[in-house]
Amino acid sequence: MTTEAVRAMPETTMIAVEHVRKSFGPVPVLKDISLSVPKGGVLSLIGPSGSGKSTLLRCLNLLTIPCEGTIRIGSHAMRFGPDHRMPRDRDLAAFRSTVGMVFQNFNLFPHMSVVQNIMEGPVTVLGRGRDDARDLAVRLLDKVGLREKADAYPDRLSGGQKQRVAIARALAMQPEVMLFDEATSALDPELVGEVLSVVRQLASEGMTMVLVTHEIAFARDVADTCVFMRDGFVVEEGPARQIIEDPQQAATKAFLSHFHKAAV
């Protein structure tokens, strides 16, 4: 079904997904997914709800454990299937610490201040000193434009501010890859821009990213590659601009037509 995968084989592949399958009980959600993202690449995953794109994203950092297949991030690879044992808590944690993730509902820790939220990973997981971690946290807050909110608690922040803190928290682990799971879907429209501009900045700095998004225009402008999923399959993939402006598959055209109508 895939259109000619015209992506030139990159020297360094940062994310590789091979033949991943996932079922929840009897319900298959991912049916033999393979894709790869080069170092510094930005991939957007689009598709109707229930297409499996969020599940695929969660498989990339093993928040959801695939039933079969291989997930590779940088030099860490994990294989799943009947012949492979369920990975241990320690191995899962080590794998996840190299992947940053940003959630639709922010999931900040409400009992910690902004700066403590950002320090939590470096201190608890990486064992860095508190002063050191605080310096890093303040630098990251500068980067997302929220330095003055360092000592505020999450319930005092707007949605856009929360999401920028969540991005800083993920970056504090100095991940090789960042995953965004509908990071702007819970935001009021006027707050979407401030979050997208941080994502855009990360892209320009060469961060490897996978975005699950409904912001089709954003997917077109920031991502180099776009994957359209439906019913647990990759229907179409290719350069983002081409997929979004000139889709070849009927299902992709049908899906995108909703957005074109709304956007123009």
């Binding site: 928040l63 808590d89 999931n107 820790f109 009992h111 990973g121 997981v125 993920a170």
Partner: peptide
């Protein structure tokens, strides 16, 4: 909220640390 578990796991926290640092205080 399960999102708290997700957030802790995504940072690479192990089960005991996640319980102690994130879940139990709340």
């Amino acid at each position: 909220d399960t999102g708290q578990w997700d957030a802790g796991r995504a940072l690479g926290m192990r089960r005991a640390a996640l319980m102690r640092r994130v879940v139990l205080p709340q």
